[in-house]
Design a protein around this nucleic acid. Structure first.
Lengths: 131, 131
DNA sequence: ACGCGCGTACTACAACTGTAGTACGACACA
DNA sequence: TGTGTCGTACTACAGTTGTAGTACGCGCGT
């Protein structure tokens, strides 16, 4: 277990955006990332570089040298980050009770009752076909 | 619309703990809050005071003077904070798709398929009895 | 009336984050 | 080979947060 695989990963919104670029492309240079991010947030090249350096220091990404440039790669899969962050929110706001979160989603009209069945069915199908 | 009722409320864990005291007790002095928090986090009296002052500056709590002491009260209900924070997580991590979050909960074993029915039924009952 | 204690107000400081500029080295092209 | 360009490394700076100390004033008790 490398120190970075702690458990509680908390990424800010800009950081997630950046990670998403890595998740999507597998590997990306600063220029790649800045370009991919440009649509969403127009950031200076060096800003993206700084963010990546910091994420690397935190152990969330790894850099590989390719000539002059660095290629970054996420060390955690998206679902791992999701798990960690959802779990954090869950314990912070819902006493760790996932059912309470679902109830909240229903109550706050974020989701409709019928959707629950749909989700369950979807998951069941995926399990059947070997996920 | 008072500036504070923006929409995106982001509270850290310690901040939520403190808010929870206010939600539970309705109103609390610094001493009250520090005492209530002591079980969870042992913080200096002044630390709690600072946190409350800052939350007040952000418009998340209001203070009322009672003699020498200040009584703090949350300006947002717990469900409002939940809504805001869940919604933030939802858009950050799941593209705003609540179904994806539920799917995640199922897949990550945070919740079992049967629980969905239970939640749905529970909610339905509550609606029937006029919620 | 006076002093002590409680409570707030202000100050402090390190860490992290968002954001970006400057400096410097290396590679490619002329 | 010289030079410019590109890319990283380092520095910067303001804002927020976690955490707490110091200072000061008001009111209660004697």
């Amino acid at each position: 277990m490398t120190a970075s695989e702690n458990d509680s990963v908390a990424l800010s919104d800009p950081q997630i955006s950046l990670m998403r670029v890595l998740w999507t492309r597998g590997e990306a240079s600063v220029a790649d990332a800045a370009a991919a991010l440009a649509a969403e947030r127009r950031l200076a090249h060096t800003t993206v570089a700084t963010m990546l350096t910091r994420l690397e220091k935190r152990g969330l990404v790894v850099a590989r040298r390719d000539g002059r440039q660095l290629l970054y790669r996420a060390r955690l899969a998206e679902h791992e980050v999701r798990r960690s962050m959802v779990s954090g929110l869950l314990s912070t706001l819902f006493g760790g009770d996932a059912k309470a979160l679902v109830a909240h989603l229903l109550r706050e009209d974020a989701i409709e009752p019928g959707d629950l069945e749909r989700v369950r069915t979807l998951l069941a199908e995926r399990e059947d076909s070997g996920g």
